[in-house]
């Protein structure tokens, strides 16, 4: 993560390649985390306290998932897949930076303050995202669940009554659309590959499925947010339909495990998150303010 850049994106809410040139490759115009950080630093972003809490949840989901995906770098089954997982992880990191920058505006904190200087019990991520990578099939199972949840979530959130949440979601949904496609392709191939790949894919889904339920739990915060947020339970039917269709095509049963205890939204985490945070935070805590 970086400090807010001084130059401002001229049209921060412009979409896609509207400014692309036929002869020159440009980064394109889209909402960047830097723009949100700058708005927060200048005091022009004012999330309501409950909106900030909500953004913190989504930001922590994405941040923890990005850190997990980063652990695949140099360990992918093929160089091409290594890059694919890295790209998806960086997409998630971008979403995390946007949500955390916006949330931080409510408390006078930066994205780095929130990412590096909170304790485990202050993280609001759901348990799915902190689950260890396991083998490639387990990671694909986690990605498949994560994207099948994030895609309808961001699609609905893009019409949030909070304009910044809507803008972040509108940018993120296109990226998560690809994440869903990527994990679906792999789920189908592993399930339809060899006996061993099918066994591993089924085992990966068994491992991750108990953490599905937590994603769709309503609580007082989501009830209080009204049109600013998406009611978690409202997404369950679509999740069941889309994941069910893919699993049926793969010839795999939807795992019928009871839901794990959950509690991530209240800061109660499994034994895995502490190690992940220690690795993620050690440098920033050892050398506060370091830059490179």
């Amino acid at each position: 993560m970086t400090t807010p850049q001084k130059h401002r994106n001229p049209t921060p809410f412009a979409q896609g390649d509207s400014a692309a040139s036929a002869t020159r490759i440009t980064p394109g115009n889209a909402l960047r985390p830097e723009d949100i950080a700058l708005a927060a630093a200048e005091g022009t972003a004012h999330p309501a306290p409950e909106v900030a809490e909500y953004a913190l949840r989504l930001g922590d989901d994405a941040l923890v998932l990005a850190q997990r995906l980063g652990q695949w770098i140099s360990r992918g089954p093929e160089l091409e897949e290594d890059v694919a997982l890295g790209n998806i992880g960086l997409d998630q990191l971008g979403h995390a930076r946007s949500f955390l920058s916006y949330a931080g505006a409510a408390w006078g904190k930066t994205e780095d303050d929130l990412a590096y200087f909170r304790r485990e019990s202050e993280f609001r991520s759901a348990h799915l995202f902190e689950q260890p990578n396991g083998d490639f099939a387990a990671t694909m199972a986690r990605q498949f669940i994560a994207a099948s949840w994030q895609y309808p979530l961001y699609r609905e959130l893009s019409s949030s009554s909070d304009p910044m949440l809507a803008a972040i979601a509108a940018k993120a949904v296109k990226e998560v659309d690809y994440h869903l496609d990527h994990s679906t392709q792999w789920l189908l191939r592993l399930a339809g590959g060899t006996d061993e790949s099918r066994r591993r894919m089924a085992a990966g889904l068994d491992l991750m499925w108990p953490f599905v339920g937590e994603l769709f739990e309503d609580d007082p915060l989501t009830a209080q947010l009204g049109d600013a947020a998406v009611v978690p339970s409202s997404l369950k039917a679509e999740f069941d339909r889309t994941t069910g269709a893919v699993l049926a095509e793969a010839g795999l049963a939807v795992p019928a495990h009871p839901m794990a205890t959950g509690g991530g939204r209240r800061g109660r985490h499994s034994e895995h998150l502490g190690y992940l945070l220690a690795e993620m935070q050690v440098l920033a805590r050892e050398f506060p303010g370091a830059s490179w």
Binding site: D17, A20, I25, T26, P27, G28, E78, L79, E80, E81, V83, A84, N87, Y178, D181, H182, Q185, R189
Partner: peptide
Amino acid sequence: SLHAPDATMALRNARDLYTRRNEGV
């Protein structure tokens, strides 16, 4: 060039490897 198990995945790997900086439509 790149490696991929089939054409569908080759397109996705190509997207990840060669259009990361807005190079293509």
